[in-house]
Nucleic acid binder design. Structure first.
Lengths: 226, 226
DNA sequence: CAGGATCCACTATTGGATCCCG
DNA sequence: CGGGATCCAATAGTGGATCCTG
């Protein structure tokens, strides 16, 4: 009834994930005692929470991979009828003050994205949440090219944040990785250092992967299956 | 007052074209006795007609390059405020019955595009036609990569036309070259051979270059100036 | 009709705003 | 809040329809 035990190997995790293909969120939610809201506005994160429990993710809300022992992050990804991602993929929140003290190789973004299990979920908006089906999961590790794209964007954005230009950042920046608000509403504010190191109040933000990027990597992983 | 004489060399044409940069369509139209309509709907082709006369194009409405002696085709290209093409570029009409009897190397598309003088024209829709300014002209010859893109699209589309599948063609096909209606209105019809070689009536169509393609080639030409 | 093209309604994309849970 | 994400109004893009001249 409650959460599954943590998988002990990559193969065990993959086998378990593949067994879910074709099942609906309603069916999977029942397994782990999570009820699926009728209103999709009220159920934004529910697919992710159900799959965490069904697959035995361990990390909870910590800044570690969902499958701690395996170093694997779990992401559900909503696909439209043609199999393309319907939304961007949230990676992590941005600690504005910490950005100045880190580099790409030590960044949370790279840690989160080093190994990701993508679980596709049907996302046609006219299908009720509980009836949406899970697809075949893919385990992704960035290719050198993909890492380079991510690093380029991250370093550009990190520099803007570190130098206090955070208010200049918009969702337009970044070829594959973008910075967007990550807050309960548009009036949220948190402290951040400004250009002169003084305090400014700014909106909480997070890193997101663009749909074109996740769509391309999924296409590559599908092609490699053959 | 009337048309300029035909330029006798590429350099003469380029020099003449560069001298026009910064002038408005109203100013240029006055030079060649073409008045610019106030209503942009009534002035769709007027920029092209003015520049033909101002630069001394020779071919008129024949299936030859505008500058016959130089083998150069003239195209005005509407740019938005950021310098990107606002519209697709018409290349030529399609003779449905002739498509089956030709190949890429002999095609009208390749002939028209072998050497093109692109003359940018401001196209912000809130600027009256007569006040829109001409930019610096670029002479384009397709790179091997660009020719390959064009050939791929052309061959795919030509085959559909030759085999009578012309009704299956939509503007969605073609990465850089597309087929779209080219007619005074949606009820126009002309004869075409169908799958079995019999007669069908279909809408007149033309080949067009996508804005992403012309935008990319202009960006390349601008970069090469430095 | 061929050549000179752009218009503009509709679709696709997007990025700022928002929702739930522990 | 941080982690799980999607919503949806506004913008960008596209392609079928259209306009003028000789």
């Amino acid at each position: 009834m409650p959460a599954a035990p943590e998988p002990q190997s990559e193969q065990e995790l993959l086998t378990r994930a593949w067994d879910l293909a074709g099942l609906t969120l309603g069916e999977l939610g029942a397994r782990v005692a999570i009820s699926v809201p009728d209103d999709s506005v009220r159920g934004k994160g529910v697919a992710g929470q159900i799959l965490e429990k069904v697959l035995g993710a361990s990390a909870g809300s910590r800044a570690e991979p969902d499958f701690t022992r395996l170093g694997i992050e779990l992401k559900t990804i909503p696909l439209d009828a043609r199999g393309k991602p319907k939304e961007s993929t949230f990676v992590c929140s941005i600690s504005l003050s910490a950005m100045a003290d880190t580099d790409w190789e030590r960044s949370t973004v790279l840690k989160k994205l080093s190994k990701v299990l993508f679980v596709p979920v049907e996302a046609a908006s006219d299908t009720p949440l509980r009836n949406r089906r899970v697809g075949r999961a893919y385990l992704w590790t960035p290719t050198p090219e993909e890492r380079e794209l991510l690093r380029n964007d991250w370093e550009r954005l990190a520099e803007m944040i570190a130098t206090g230009d955070v208010e200049q950042i918009t969702g337009h920046l970044g070829e594959v990785l973008q910075v967007r608000p990550k807050a309960p509403h548009g009036r949220s504010r948190r402290r951040a250092p400004d250009e002169e190191g003084a305090v400014q109040w700014t909106m909480p933000r997070g890193f997101y992967l663009r749909p074109t990027f996740t769509g391309a990597l999924l296409a590559r992983l599908r092609a490699e299956e053959d």
